[in-house]
Design a protein around this nucleic acid. Structure first.
Lengths: 248, 248
DNA sequence: GTGCAGCTTTGATACAGATCAAGAACGGAC
DNA sequence: GTCCGTTCTTGATCTGTATCAAAGCTGCAC
């Protein structure tokens, strides 16, 4: 796995890599100061569980670097991933004392945590935080609803293509950019995690990834590094509106 | 269909049946006054489309009475319902100009609409509205994530049982209450709409409803009126945590 | 280097739910 | 009452994905 110790423990919000996308995005300098007082960093290693569903949760926070998953599990063990947490994504729910989902780090990860009570307090006083949180929550709701279509109506092949295009897209937004030429990225998920996201078995995931490779929709180097020569082709396979429409 | 003309066009927010659950729930009397100035009512008949995905949308609003569905459609016609809108539920997204989903009234329906620009304006000035909207959006996000588990991992029978228990539950919250004795309610959805919600075909829905009836998990009077003699049995069939746990 | 553990691929087979195809039940118009 | 359109049920068959099973790959510990 990649070492990311250069990010080690940021202290100053102004230098923070997620400063302009996280829940603090709209805060003014003075508001940031208040946040600095109640924040602390936590690191997690790949595979480590951040919180178990049902546990008491006395903090909320933002993913600073790395990736985590949000999953739900039935008593008999069937599991469904309900969210993928990327840098700047928010964890926890103000006004609720216990975690609703399991949160697991899939790569090494750094979180910027806020003690829950003071954070809730601040939310009531500084509208910039609540406004930004509303905006982020609405975005997540849209993402969840898009995912409902994937889960309910798409074929296995379309599901894989959908997942790949989502990862490709936000990899592009997060890092460099440019979605016209070939795009490549590392899959942050195992086949099993992909299966849990897509409502499939890991065998089906493996077969469909192989099929997309055989049909030259994607290229693989190793098992995790994916190259997409033609993004619009991938979107077509995903069953999404084809016009290559990269609407912002 | 039921006539609901007694609800005709409420004018005074204080008498509004959704006063304490809608986006205006936390407003004080003076804030309600401001809302009164920008609100207007619209009625829709069963089957009528409220908005088409992609259309310009110059209002947001709340369902006052009746039921609507939120659906997404792929180019080839596959459709997935992504939300069920009940009285007090909010329609539209502040800060966005076009509808993201089709909204269709499944029963006769009354909506309390607010012109979008003044509403957004007011949101920035009265935190009570933004706070309540955040809370409601977080609830919807939870519901969407719960639904992802249903769509991704449950069997057809479990899906039907899940849908019935959700309808039963909120029917109880909305109207009278009491979930220990037998519960009965009218299905607000056709078999096809149920199928669209559950990611199934209408034939499968029909078969599984019949199967639940044969196994005496439910009783039917006509095709739409359902009685659940034992709610915990239904929850068991849904694969949900069994303890009958009606946690608030 | 060898051995092992976790991840992944591939194959054979089974089955849940889709699809195709009739009819049956119900409600409204006349 | 009859007719017709819509919604729903039921049956026969097909198929995509799950399940069961085995083997390949990769990287780490030693």
């Amino acid at each position: 796995m990649l070492k990311q110790d250069n990010l080690s423990v940021t202290q100053d919000c102004h230098d923070c890599p997620i400063r302009h996308r996280a829940v603090c995005a709209r805060c003014e300098t003075d508001e940031l100061g208040l946040l600095e007082d109640i924040k602390y960093y936590r690191r997690f290693e790949a595979g480590q569980t951040v919180i178990w569903s049902g546990d008491r949760m006395d903090f909320v926070g933002s993913v600073v670097s790395g990736i985590a998953t949000l999953t739900q599990t039935m008593e008999d063990g069937r599991t469904q991933m309900v969210g993928l947490l990327l840098p700047s994504d928010f964890v926890g729910r103000p006004g609720r004392g216990t975690a609703a989902y399991d949160v697991v780090a899939t790569t090494d990860m750094v979180m910027c945590c806020f003690r829950k009570a003071p954070f809730e307090d601040m939310m009531n006083r500084t509208p910039h935080i609540a406004q930004r949180l509303l905006e982020m929550t609405l975005d997540e709701l849209d993402a969840a609803r898009e995912w409902m279509l994937v889960l309910g109506r798409k074929t296995a092949r379309e599901k894989i293509a959908s997942l790949l295009s989502i990862i490709a897209r936000r990899d592009a937004t997060l890092n460099l950019g440019a979605l016209d030429g070939p795009v490549s990225f590392d899959l942050p998920l195992t086949r099993e995690a992909m299966a849990d996201y897509l409502g499939l078995t890991l065998e089906t995931v493996s077969r469909q990834v192989s099929a997309l490779k055989k049909d030259q929709v994607i290229t693989l180097e190793g098992k995790r590094h994916v190259t997409v020569p033609d993004m619009s082709r991938l979107l077509e396979e995903a069953g999404d509106d084809t016009d290559g429409g990269m609407l912002v």
